[in-house]
Nucleic acid binder design. Structure first.
Length: 520
RNA sequence: GGGCGGGUAGCUCAGCUGGUUAGAGCAGAGCGCUCAUAACGCUUUGGUCGGGGGUUCAAGUCCCUCUCCGCCUACCA
């Protein structure tokens, strides 16, 4: 038996802002994959969490007049509260202010230090507090006085700062990283991100500042209380602190490290694809198998922003589309990895077309015919025609076909494959016309309805990762045992048993009304 | 400035190493059906493949150039 463990992570979300469409999107994508892999027989560990350190958080807390920890507790709770309404099946939720995480960070720091990759030096440059970033001369404009400059890109005020800082010898890893990318062509996805990262590394890397002395809301640097760790060495480490690496809290490293995939937003790809592998190499730990960047949504053609007031909140999604609808719309509306445009009208069309008219109506029409004409039991099956076999074989082939797509993070292709069978099944009903067979050939009608029920079973099992609520309801209507709903049951050996009593069918995915007022 | 993507039917996108009449879904139109959530099926309208030049027997598919859009260039998914 090969290793059937699977570790997937989302980024940890920065608590300086509230959860929105983007967070839901990334987390849902990871959830779909996690659920898929569980059904495919993997022992899955799915991690999400919050990134809680840094100057901005400290300042926000101060502004709110509360202790930073209390501030973090409040915002982290908001992120946590989003999970269950969207059916996110995470196994753990890591917070960077937890002790287990701090322990791991300090242990990792020491490893890097022991490896000779950390040294103390000075960092000098124009620093913007607001952006928590240094800017080069070419990125600045003159400010109101000689001591102040303005960052062209963000408009933030920058001051000249000289700061003692620890550095990581990232420059030593340029060649090692390039070789690693060559040896592992699928490490970074999608392709565009991979190209971008490789080109960036090929230019040559400079050493990385990894500590700060200007604020103290962070993990202390071992042996030097003046310093706290800077964001990336702190944040990235969460992926192993949650597994208990060197912190004594749990022991999941052997099982789950290296991670199978880190799902990230495209703006943080480089940290995951450059710094993180370099840190791990330095600590002599295995590298994750894949870093996959998802794109960004614009909303109705415009960038989502607070000033435009078009930020889509998790609450808005739930009110408009419900949990299954939101999940489906987000995953089906754009190819994973691309940028996309979230348009209320097309989300409604998508949900109505694929869920209500497609899968939902397929189940409803089939199951009510069974209820009315087969005494509410799974129909008899006679000899299968070639049409029957074609449809069933396509359904049975789904686990294999879709797993390739999911492994490549092509979630939209997985959905297309499943819904292609839904379409075939609807065409099959019309072609077979069981309502005619009812009078002409009742036996054949039974077989046709049996085939339909069986295909609905398959399609619903396949749809569980994307539609946890609705797919379950359909499977309940097929009286399928909860323990018989994995991909291993997707074959004729586990086909529906004729004669099983079925409950009264009910609609599962209601049609949505297009309410344009809800667009914003 | 440098880098990476992308501009293909009204919309969202497929089109691998160049090769018959450029595809899908949605939207539109027509027909059919009546089991079903005014749902389903079938057929169909629609594209000078961003502009220009080149290579080739043959180019959305390769090369050059121009143009437009997005993103990255040290922390908004």
């Amino acid at each position: 038996m090969k290793n059937k463990n699977f570790y997937i992570t989302t980024p940890i979300y920065y608590v300086n802002g509230d959860p929105h469409l983007g967070h839901v999107y990334t987390t849902t994508a990871a959830d779909v994959v996690a659920r898929f892999k569980r059904l495919a027989g993997y022992n899955v560990h799915f991690l999400t969490g919050t990134d809680e350190h840094g100057q901005k958080v400290a300042q926000s807390a101060e502004k709110a007049g509360i202790d930073p920890q209390e501030f973090c507790d409040q915002v982290a709770q908001k992120f946590r509260d989003v999970l269950s309404p969207f059916q996110i099946s995470n196994d753990d939720f890591i917070r960077t202010t937890e002790d287990r995480h701090k322990k791991t960070c300090m242990a990792l720091w020491k490893k890097l230090e022991d490896a000779g990759d950390i040294y103390l030096d000075k960092y000098a440059g124009w620093y913007a507090v607001r952006d928590e970033a240094y800017y080069g001369e070419d990125e600045l404009e003159d400010g109101p006085d000689a001591d102040t400059k303005i960052a062209t890109a963000t408009g933030a005020e920058c001051k000249w700062v000289e700061e003692e800082s620890y550095f990581f010898r990232l420059s030593d890893y340029t060649d090692k990283l390039l070789k690693f990318y060559d040896d592992n062509p699928d490490f970074i996805g999608p392709k565009s991100s991979a190209n971008e990262i490789k080109a960036f590394v090929a230019q040559g890397l400079t050493d990385l500042s990894i500590s700060r002395t200007t604020f103290d809301w962070g993990v202390p640097v071992p042996g030097n209380d003046k310093h706290v760790m800077y964001v990336w060495i702190d944040a990235l480490t969460n992926y192993i602190s949650a597994l208990g690496w060197e912190n004594g809290e749990s022991n999941l490293m052997d099982q789950f490290w290296p991670a199978d995939v880190h799902v990230v937003g495209k703006e943080i790809t480089r940290f995951h694809a450059i710094y993180w592998p370099a840190f791990l190499m330095s600590a002599n730990l295995p590298l994750p198998k894949k870093v996959y960047a998802n794109g960004w949504w614009v909303v109705e053609g415009e960038k989502m922003s607070k000033s435009l007031g078009n930020v889509i909140t998790p609450e808005t999604l739930l009110e408009n589309y419900g949990s299954d609808g939101s999940r489906y719309a987000l995953m089906a509306e754009m190819p994973f990895g691309n940028d996309g445009n979230f348009v209320h009208e097309s989300a409604v069309n998508r949900i109505n077309g694929d869920l209500a008219n497609g899968l939902g109506n397929l189940a409803q029409r089939s199951l009510s015919m069974i209820a009315k004409n087969c005494e509410s039991v799974v129909p008899h099956k006679g000899e299968f025609s070639s049409d029957d076999k074609t449809l069933l074989e396509k359904a049975y082939a789904l686990p294999e076909v879709t797993e390739t797509h999911v492994n490549a993070m092509q979630i939209h292709k997985y959905l297309e494959a499943v819904w292609s069978v839904v379409g075939d099944a609807n065409a099959y009903i019309d072609a077979q016309a069981p309502w005619k067979l009812k009078k002409e050939n009742p036996d054949r009608m039974q077989t046709v309805l049996y085939v339909l029920a069986e295909v609905i079973r398959c399609v619903s099992i396949m749809a569980q990762p994307i539609l946890p609520t609705g797919a379950d309801k359909i499977l309940d209507q097929l009286a399928l045992d909860k323990s018989s709903r994995t991909f291993a049951h997707l074959n004729e050996n586990h086909a529906l048993q004729s004669g099983m009593t079925l409950p009264v069918p009910q609609g599962v995915f209601p049609r949505l009304e297009l309410n344009t007022e809800q667009a914003a």
